[in-house]
Design a protein around this nucleic acid. Structure first.
Lengths: 307, 307
DNA sequence: GTAAAAAGATTGGTTTTTCCTATCCAACGG
DNA sequence: CCGTTGGATAGGAAAAACCAATCTTTTTAC
């Protein structure tokens, strides 16, 4: 048994409106016999007569009416297929799966999403958190289309676009001797305790390096799993740590709470970017999204992050 | 530019689930190269890559995910096409356009429709009234699939199925000398006035014939356009007329109102049937519907109409 | 009533599409 | 480093779609 084809549905759709073979065939740019054969094949496949052939116009059978209606619906849905990728060069549409680092996403994405929704209502982002290590795996495995993560990325099967550079501030307990200082130099940290996230976060490596360079001690009896947990530990006097500017700006009020924020001199920074599989090419939509995020940062995080 | 085909969508649908060419090709019962070519053609047509080919499984692009979802929808809708005529030999489904005579339909169809809806919930009847003359035209023009009308039908391009035979009763003003009589013979009508519907109704011909046979006078200064109008005229004393049993049974209460109903002896009858274009064949659904109507009559109009 | 016109069905042969087998090439695993 | 795996490519055969020409029947015109 031969299957239905879209060609048959297209032909029958036109025929059901024109109600005349020759006319319909002309509209379709084919010969009348071709049309006849296709309609016959469709009837054969469905096992029903779709129209009564009469010299003066066709009459659709009840089944023919239903088939025509259903065919119409199908053809419209097929038309939508063409539009899925159609004007997407210029517009952001569809659904993107975005992996997000827990140290960046929660403090950046809320504002991005709000503006994104008004600017590109047809774009839907599915966001999933994960440690940077997991995220790279999941990106390569196809669970994400792109990930928002800290740079640099040391893999050659992943492409990326730089988004922003963000200062890292020193967070100390409020009653600590360094609290309230205008700025802190590395050597000021000699002998102090530093705590950090667990090692799958890049931030932890920067804390380690700071320890090595300054003579501070890295407490290995505790590793936070979130920036909030880290801040709590600092406030409890377990030690000091580095907190990203975006986080500090949104979660630590100057002069309030048990944690004081101080700039480092010279400054420490981290970089964030948008990354994707090299094998996915470099879809225009990815660059477009990156550009949009940079726009949001420029407007909403002026002074806290640098493009 | 080549068009999308259902074949391509079917293939891509399976591929998007299996995420492996060889596997998908085996499921589809085709060779792997055939699958490759069809998918390539689809990508070419849409102008987008739908999947990243990697040795370890495919990864759908965002567009690929959308196309897969839309294809799924389309394929399901196509499946419905097969079902339109599928089990319809056994079942009544879809939409039938039924033309109905104003002297039969309103008094028969309400009960038929109620039972029809419970017995065949998937059948929809679109009912349009019209004079018998119009109806035959509209039937042949394709505006109706079938018509409920009085028999006989004198056209060889129309087939029909007999439904029931229905007595015609004499309706006289209540104060008339014939009111209350057990039965009336033709000769009793000599010299009386008879009124009838306009001539496009078959009932009018039977009134004419009764006049000719009995010596009654046909008043040509009035022609009703509905049975209700006719009854009103009788009650106003304009004359007497013939009313079908189904109408009389539903609209004229014995002993009430200004009109009295009397049987004729020997009886007068009319026949009703379901008719359709000969060129539409004789769809099983038509006969099925006719049988169903006869069933309703047997149950609900016992004694008033005869099968 | 008859002839011309119109409209769908049929036929035969050509072009296009689809498919398969065989082969190739890159990535991965041991 | 070599064998295995999985998608891409090439060539030729089978199937499908198409058109021009023709046939048959209905409709229209005179």
């Amino acid at each position: 048994m031969t299957a239905i084809t879209l060609r048959q549905l297209r032909y029958f759709s036109v025929l059901s409106k024109s109600l005349q073979y020759r006319n319909a065939a002309r509209q379709l740019g084919i010969s009348q016999p071709s049309l006849s054969l296709q309609i016959n094949a469709l009837e054969e496949t469905l096992g029903t007569r779709l129209a009564e052939r009469r010299r003066s116009g066709l009459i659709l059978t009840p089944e023919g009416r239903e088939v025509a209606a259903q065919a119409e619906k199908i053809l419209q849905d097929v038309e939508k297929l063409y539009r899925i990728s159609g004007p997407s060069e210029n517009r952001l549409t569809g659904t993107l799966h975005l992996g997000s680092s827990p140290t960046i996403g929660p403090y950046l994405l809320p504002r991005v999403l709000r503006q994104l929704h008004t600017a590109y209502p047809d774009l839907k982002l599915v966001i999933r958190d994960g440690t940077p290590r997991e995220m790279t795996e999941d990106l390569l495995a196809g669970k994400h289309d792109l990930v928002l993560t800290q740079l640099p990325i040391a893999r050659d099967d992943v492409s990326h676009k730089f988004l922003f550079r963000e200062p890292l501030y020193l967070a100390v307990p409020r009653e600590h001797r360094l609290a309230g200082r205008d700025h802190v130099k590395k050597m000021d940290l000699a002998g102090e305790n530093l705590i950090s996230l667990n090692s799958s976060y890049m931030l932890s490596r920067q804390v380690s390096e700071l320890c090595a360079a300054s003579g501070a001690r890295l407490r290995d009896d505790f590793e936070g799993t979130s920036l909030d947990a880290l801040r709590q530990m600092v406030s409890l006097g377990m030690g000091m740590t580095l907190l990203p500017a975006l986080y500090a700006g949104s979660e630590v009020k100057p002069g309030e709470g048990d944690v004081a924020i101080t700039q480092m001199k010279p400054g420490l920074y981290r970089q964030a970017g948008l990354a994707w599989r090299r094998s996915s090419g470099t879809p225009a939509s990815f660059l477009k999204l990156a550009e949009f995020i940079r726009g949001v940062i420029a407007k909403e995080f002026a002074g806290k992050a640098f493009l």
